[in-house]
Write a protein that binds this DNA or RNA. Structure first.
Lengths: 338, 338
DNA sequence: CTGAAAGCGCTAACAC
DNA sequence: GTGTTAGCGCTTTCAG
């Protein structure tokens, strides 16, 4: 109705109206026990009446806690991270926290500046799917210097002493590769991801499994790509090779999807001539041209578990044991490796 | 190195070290002109040395501005909204704003509580892809009562006097339907979305175009669905009908993808026997089993334009003309309507 | 049980 | 140019 912007109601206003102190009202708002029953109900009534909403900025400054946590992901458009974000939000919301989501665009410097911003905003904790190069620890040190708890997600940093939640990347590489071998493939190519633990681990699992099976692949069977588009182009090169691969293991679903596009476009049949497998079980995997076999890594659960660990760390004085949660990857076999 | 959490450096610390007043330091930090060159450089040096980072909570309280804006979307997993979020972030970041992203899960009550939280956090503005039922204005009134600028995204509310940025939904419906007619389809079914302006507008465009072409469709040719899964089931019902549709217009890409899944599963060929078109041009549209024809609505640009309008409104005293940006939809014809 | 005092770290507005 | 005075709206601490 009244479209005249009103200055928000403050504790002070309620206190004045009721002839009690600001403190008493504050206590009622926060649900402290030490307030008389009758006083409490009078205050509560007035609060409802005026529709009082606490000013969280003021509250945060005084209490030195914001009840905000920061989440930094490399790319929100990748549904894997969107799902993590969802899991995080779902986990912390009931506890009264809000999450500020930032996109690092897979760029370490941008990420560092996001971290600084979030720290400047006094977040109580940080969740980080970091795009830092593996040996660069400056960002983590800055966080630690501030004493703000944080949890690493998806990408691991061996030298950093922080909790981590993610999938077992080497296991992912092994499972995917073994699956292709089991399906009779012998010339298995790999679209490797960026040089982060995810990409490196999956590639390592791939190489180990190949070696264990006594398979050797020609020079050039491992190509690099970061998204569906670069994977598309990389795959076109792969298809020129002699002998041509009879399988491609993409380091994530988007790259596998890009590979499929190149393969089908070349008039090659999936899975008859080339089998394809990805990682991530993104939501649309089974809607692709050929439903994509993939390795599921429970993204929602990653978000939730990371959030749980973080919240516990926030509520604790100092030095809890550094937890590492490795989620067991699960093979989802679909048409693309039939 | 030093993993001993240090209390953050404050203006006061720098002021003390340099024997100047807190104000002077504050002015330097904010880049005010009225500071002596020599003083400024001393302060700057110390700031760098100590790696001073302003406390934004305190700053926000004092300045009565947080430089945070809130963005509420129904579903971050839907890449349309993820893309909008990205566009928003990209647009406001260089201006010093941060965005707090919230998920309403397509639930009006949850959305209302998110709005309250964001308002409580004193955001400077709000971007809202609202899940409110069309006649419910309580949320908007609460925002207006606080005098916080906001702009509506994607879903429109005719009675609400706020800027709006989104696609022209009726045009979308017309273009999609006309395209199917042009391709020779005569029994065009529609998977209608929820009863919001998006769903309603697209359906209206569909019906108008059908009428204009003198086409009538049997009872039951319009079914409702909200996501790929419900669309999958709805389409299975559609396929039982007699006569069977020769085209399906899905109100967005996920529903169209779900429809395709049901069609192909039934052994029916796309586009030979049934043509399919969606809306949104989501990122993976051309990777689907049959590359999906769709209507593009420039999601990134929606985010950017909405953010621009909001930022301008924030920087203004009061009452700017209420801008409505209707983005022209563009047909992207792919294999599914060949 | 209630409240007064003392800030949280910073900035607006105005003097000097 | 620089600094002073007053807070922003809330919570902490501790006395009554």
């Amino acid at each position: 109705m009244s479209h005249t912007p009103t200055t928000p109601v403050r504790l002070k206003d309620i206190a004045r109206d009721l002839n009690v102190s600001v403190m008493t009202v504050s206590k009622v708002v926060r649900g402290c026990a030490d307030v008389g029953a009758e006083t409490r109900s009078r205050v509560l009534a007035r609060i409802k009446e005026l529709n009082y909403q606490p000013n969280w900025v003021a509250r945060s400054l005084a209490a030195r806690r914001t009840f905000m946590i920061g989440l930094i992901v490399p790319d929100l458009m990748h549904s894997f991270f969107a799902e993590i974000a969802k899991g995080v939000a779902a986990a912390i919301r009931p506890l009264g926290y809000d999450v500020v989501i930032c996109n690092s665009e897979e760029n370490g410097d941008l990420e560092a500046s996001e971290v600084d911003r979030l720290l400047g905003r006094q977040v109580d904790g940080l969740l980080l799917a970091s795009a830092q190069p593996p040996s660069s620890h400056a960002v983590f040190e800055r966080i630690e210097a501030r004493g703000v708890p944080y949890v690493l997600i998806d990408r691991r940093f061996a030298a950093v002493r922080a909790p981590y939640v993610g999938a077992d990347d080497e296991a992912i590489g092994r499972i995917a590769t073994q699956h292709l071998i089991d399906r009779g493939c012998r010339r298995i190519a790999h679209i490797a991801g960026p040089a982060l633990t995810t990409g490196i681990g999956r590639r390592k699992g791939y190489e180990e499994t190949l070696a264990a099976a006594g398979l050797r692949v020609p020079e050039g069977y491992v190509v690099e790509a970061t998204d569906d588009d670069s994977a598309y182009h990389a795959t076109r090169r792969l298809l020129q090779m002699n002998p041509r691969p009879d399988a491609i293991f993409g380091y994530n679903d988007p790259t596998a999807a890009g590979a499929m596009k190149a393969i089908l476009e070349a008039g090659i049949r999936i899975p008859e001539e080339i089998k394809v497998i990805g990682v991530g079980n993104v939501h649309y995997s089974d809607l692709l041209r050929v439903p994509l076999s993939t390795i599921d890594q429970s993204s929602t659960s990653i978000g939730q578990q990371a959030a749980d660990i973080l919240i516990k760390a926030i509520g604790t004085k100092r030095k809890r044991p550094i937890k590492t949660v490795l989620i067991d990857p699960i093979l989802i076999a679909r048409e693309s490796t039939r």
